[in-house]
Amino acid sequence: MSITVEKQADLKDPQEALYRPLLCKMVSVKELTPTEKLFRLERLDGRPFGHRPGQFVQVSIPGIGEAPISVSSSPSRGSYLELGVRRTGVLTGALHEMIQPGDVIGFRGPFGTYFDVDAMKGRDLILISGGCGLAPMRALIQYIEDHRDQYGKVTILYGAKSPIDILYKDELAQWVTSTQLNCQYTVDDVPEGTCWDANVGLITQLIPPLDIDPARSLAVIVGPPIMYRFVLQELKKKNLPINQIIVSLERYMKCGVGKCGHCTIEHLYCCMDGPVFWLNDVINLAGAL
């Protein structure tokens, strides 16, 4: 982790408007689950967003505000941006309720660090995500699919709360049947009366049976805060060193550019130094995981 620090502030050079939202168009809205939708955005000027898997954008709806949302699509799929959004707060509620295809909304970004796809080259990859964590992970998976020959064995593990909460069901089915990928998923719980013939149980149960070569593997973990500790315990049993693990951390970024202070983890700003971190950079920081 390198933090560049200038000795003194340069108060002379001109700057861009850091907080000005740019405009983009809502191209399509697709329901993923009862609480999640997939929004596809395109810039009004047609240019690509210039994002990389793992980054996020600040979505702005005038009168409602802004919220950070991680990008769910890989730039290798086109110049659009897809956002898989769970309805939790004020802005995500407005996105779900108010915004229709054709509407113009604001965005800033993309911001933050990204999954280091170069460092992953030639490695066996274990991509572990839980719940909404599949949203940014999907961007990475898409990217890897589109550059499949550059990577070794690719294992995708995904856990959802219950069958109804599973995200990207069609793609998940494709990944499962793909000969290029080893994809497994599980749900924590199956409500009575639901038809279900796949795994039931926590995502951690999918790790022990895996055949992991610690020397050539690299793991990426994205999920709810509670998940990290348990997944890391399992990976430790597989002797995977912490400098071969990448995590993406969730915080409520307000500005996205390291100014508002809401996403600090000790001396780091999750929006700028993260959200994607090498585990060894954050494992000893209070409150990180």
């Binding site: 200038e6 003194q8 502030a9 108060l11 850091l18 907080y19 550019v257 390291g258 100014k259 700028m272």
Partner: peptide, 18 residues
């Protein structure tokens, strides 16, 4: 000054400070 001028530059602050 340094905080608002390092990495991303905070124009709201800097336009008053410059």
């Amino acid at each position: 000054d340094r905080f608002f001028s390092t990495n991303f530059k905070d124009d709201l602050y800097r336009q008053k400070r410059m």
